[in-house]
Amino acid sequence: MDERDWLVLQTLYKEKNITNAAKTLYISQPALTNRLKQIEKVFGVKIVNRGRRGVQFTPQGEYLAKCANEMIQRMQSIKENVHNMEYKMTGTLRLGVSTFFTDYKLPGLLKLFKDEYPNIEFKVITDWSSHIAHLIHNQDVHVGFVKGDYGWKDQKRLLFEETICIASKEEIDLDHLPDLPRIDYRTDQNLKMLVDNWWAAHYTKPPLISIDVDKAGTCKNMVANGLGYAILPSMILDDLENLHKIDLNTSDGEPIIRKSWMFYHEESLQLNIVRAFVEFIERVDLDAIH
């Protein structure tokens, strides 16, 4: 059993479908089926049963699939430790990054880091902050960039603070806000709850959603073209002029602040590439990166 075999089990367990797993692994279906047979031969057990609705794992297969995550992570750790022993800045840095950070900061940030350490490669996972917090907790990534605290108990660094604001092309009266067309977008649960709670504290009727899009960037462009108002984190709007913005406030009249953090484990600093990256983030001017 090599790392590729464990990856086959991990992927098939996730997909529950030979065709989809083969596509994910960039191999043919016959090659995947043959690999499965070889794995079954090694352990002397039946791993999966195939049916019209895909594949079903046997109890032994379930056990091996769950072991796959541990084995792959263990192999990654061994490789990282071997590279680390050479005292060279080589290897793969695994990052988990929230959607906003990916769109607005990550490309420029990685370029600067790559300029300093050209032999380092990156594996980046982008998702909502809640999922990134889960990945860093399980040590599936070395460093996580998230919005919100998530009860993180290990090492963290504050990166940004921003307000949440109502943005529109034209000046608006907050008393009339429920009757004005709003552009909504998909975002992480923490921000959605924050906005919903603010709305419930100020209005008795729901917002008039006229346009619903998939990303904050698309929403911003809709606002810039005068198609309605939106409630957005202020940093997204920094590159737009001639917009009217009103910060959301707490019941005490203070602006509602949303914080962005870098999370990592203290023990991860034993890896040269992680320590170099954390030190790089602490000295670089993030506000200047676009």
Rank of each mutant, 00 (worst) to 15 (best):
E170C: 01
G151E: 03
K245H: 10
A230D: 06
E267T: 15
L240E: 13
L208F: 08
Y150L: 01
M193R: 07
E161N: 05
G253W: 15
L232N: 07
D247R: 06
L237T: 06
G148M: 02
D239G: 15
Y229C: 04
A230G: 11
K220P: 12
S210D: 12
A200F: 03
A216M: 05
M193S: 14
A276K: 15
I273F: 01
W152T: 10
L240D: 07
F263R: 11
K245V: 10
D188P: 00
D149Y: 05
P181Y: 02
S234T: 14
A216C: 07
D247S: 12
R283M: 10
L191V: 12
I209F: 09
Q270D: 12
G217R: 11
L248G: 07
P233R: 05
Y264E: 05
H176Q: 02
K259Q: 03
Y150N: 07
N221Q: 13
I211W: 06
T163C: 08
H244D: 01
K147F: 05
P178K: 13
G253N: 09
E279F: 12
V223E: 00
R157G: 08
N242Y: 12
E171W: 11
I257W: 11
I256F: 14
E279W: 05
K192F: 04
S251K: 15
K259E: 12
S168A: 03
A216D: 09
C165P: 09
D252K: 08
L194Q: 04
I273V: 08
I257D: 14
I236Y: 15
K147P: 02
Y229E: 02
S268G: 13
P255C: 14
V213D: 03
K169V: 07
F160K: 03
K169P: 00
T163A: 06
V195D: 03
I256N: 12
V223R: 14
K220D: 07
K156C: 01
G226T: 06
G228E: 04
C219A: 14
I273D: 15
V278R: 12
D239W: 09
G228L: 01
A216Y: 08
A224S: 10
L237M: 15
D214I: 10
G217H: 11
V284S: 02
D239T: 08
E279A: 03
E161S: 07
E170H: 05
E282G: 00
E161Y: 05
D196P: 00
N249R: 13
L158G: 01
T163E: 10
C165V: 03
Q155T: 00
M222C: 05
L248E: 10
E282V: 01
A230S: 06
R186L: 05
I273C: 09
C165N: 00
D173N: 07
Q155L: 04
W152R: 03
T250L: 00
P181C: 03
I256A: 13
E282K: 15
